[in-house]
Amino acid sequence: MSLRTQLSDILPSLLPNNPAEAIKGTELIRLVRLQLTGNYSDASLRYHFSIMSCDPASPIAKVEKGQGYYRRSAPVPALSGAQELLSLSQGRLDDLNSDRGAVDHALERVKKFRAIVRRFNELNGRFPFEFREAFSAGSPLGNLWKYPEVAVVDWQTGDDPDEGMSLDSKMLAMKQRLGLPPFRLSGARLRIQSTLHSYREDFFQALSGSMWTQGGELIYAAPIEDGALADGLRALNATFGVGVISYGLSIEVLDDLPRAANILNAHPKETEALMERIDFNRIAAPRYRQHIDWSLLDTLRRDSSETTKLIEWLASCIEKGRAEPLAD
């Protein structure tokens, strides 16, 4: 097995998620040697750390200013990433194919926005579940219409602050007797910006991917300033019920934000500053259904291990009587 292959297997368990806790190269070499097969020099290991940290597909990333390495945040899933690039380039991918740097820059914006959406939901007492395997390379294009990029769970929790995120036992019991889910499950489609030529596709993908949930949302990073575009989205919402949200984060603001890993691991004061940059605007409110489409969910469960993971997570929270975030 090559050194790079070994490092790709070993490094994820050794590297910290938080760039602020980056591990120095000397210490990383010491830890790697405990699991490495073969006799490699320190210089060879440092060289591979440096080369791999420049590869967006590798598990290791180097801090931008300073020393040390951390675990790279998950890449943008292939299908949703390709569709976002297609939208950003107005359908002319040839414009980007000749400039790999532009592609990486555009995908970094997507990663930042996904991180912002995740943190925003968590801070507002909602529990996100990200679908990734469904949009991985080699997955059928139909998955763009079959799964949401993010499923969001709203639990009914108790009013006592001392109980934290404990579920409201009385409400839980009542909903179980009525055959209602003890949570509200919605599906969301994430996009950087809306345009007159792409908003219908965005909307109907959000609708289609959330049919098995209790409601759907289409979430844009950039502000929606075109009146005709906003009216078109509201007209679709009036008929089909998918909510539309803008976080008011322009391309320039996204480029100015720290990397996704820094957003996800920011300290409370840093997170507060990041959230202040959001100019939240609800273009149209979602309409929720009382029931989940269990037959459709069961079909998806047989097609996707991620759906099984979602169900097991929800069942675990109910069994424990606590609303808990999904462990990475």
Results as ranks from 00 to 15, higher is better:
residue 1 M to Q: 01
residue 2 S to L: 01
residue 5 T to P: 06
residue 6 Q to R: 06
residue 9 D to P: 04
residue 10 I to L: 11
residue 12 P to C: 02
residue 12 P to S: 05
residue 19 P to G: 06
residue 20 A to N: 07
residue 24 K to R: 15
residue 25 G to F: 08
residue 26 T to A: 10
residue 28 L to R: 06
residue 28 L to T: 07
residue 30 R to N: 12
residue 34 L to M: 15
residue 35 Q to T: 12
residue 35 Q to K: 14
residue 49 F to C: 02
residue 50 S to E: 05
residue 57 A to K: 13
residue 58 S to N: 15
residue 63 V to S: 07
residue 76 V to H: 11
residue 77 P to C: 15
residue 84 E to F: 12
residue 84 E to I: 00
residue 85 L to H: 05
residue 90 Q to V: 07
residue 92 R to K: 13
residue 94 D to P: 07
residue 97 N to I: 13
residue 99 D to T: 12
residue 100 R to S: 12
residue 103 V to W: 03
residue 103 V to Y: 03
residue 106 A to S: 09
residue 116 I to D: 00
residue 118 R to E: 13
residue 118 R to Y: 03
residue 119 R to G: 11
residue 121 N to S: 06
residue 124 N to L: 04
residue 132 R to W: 08
residue 132 R to T: 15
residue 133 E to R: 15
residue 134 A to C: 00
residue 137 A to G: 08
residue 138 G to N: 02
residue 139 S to H: 06
residue 141 L to A: 05
residue 143 N to I: 06
residue 151 A to Y: 11
residue 151 A to P: 08
residue 153 V to A: 01
residue 153 V to D: 10
residue 157 T to Q: 10
residue 158 G to W: 09
residue 162 D to C: 11
residue 164 G to A: 09
residue 166 S to M: 11
residue 168 D to Q: 12
residue 169 S to F: 04
residue 171 M to T: 13
residue 175 K to D: 02
residue 178 L to Y: 11
residue 178 L to C: 04
residue 183 F to G: 03
residue 186 S to W: 02
residue 190 L to C: 07
residue 194 S to M: 14
residue 197 H to V: 15
residue 198 S to T: 15
residue 206 A to E: 06
residue 208 S to K: 04
residue 210 S to W: 02
residue 211 M to P: 00
residue 213 T to M: 09
residue 213 T to W: 07
residue 217 E to D: 12
residue 218 L to S: 12
residue 220 Y to A: 14
residue 232 G to Q: 01
residue 233 L to D: 03
residue 239 T to D: 07
residue 241 G to R: 03
residue 247 Y to M: 10
residue 247 Y to V: 02
residue 249 L to F: 13
residue 249 L to P: 03
residue 249 L to M: 09
residue 250 S to Q: 04
residue 250 S to E: 01
residue 251 I to P: 01
residue 253 V to T: 03
residue 261 A to P: 13
residue 264 L to A: 08
residue 265 N to G: 13
residue 266 A to V: 10
residue 268 P to G: 12
residue 277 R to W: 12
residue 280 F to E: 08
residue 291 H to S: 09
residue 291 H to R: 13
residue 292 I to Y: 08
residue 292 I to D: 14
residue 293 D to T: 07
residue 295 S to C: 15
residue 297 L to H: 00
residue 298 D to P: 00
residue 300 L to N: 03
residue 316 S to W: 01
residue 317 C to W: 03
residue 319 E to F: 04
residue 319 E to Q: 14
residue 320 K to F: 15
residue 321 G to W: 07
residue 323 A to W: 08
residue 323 A to M: 04
residue 327 A to E: 06
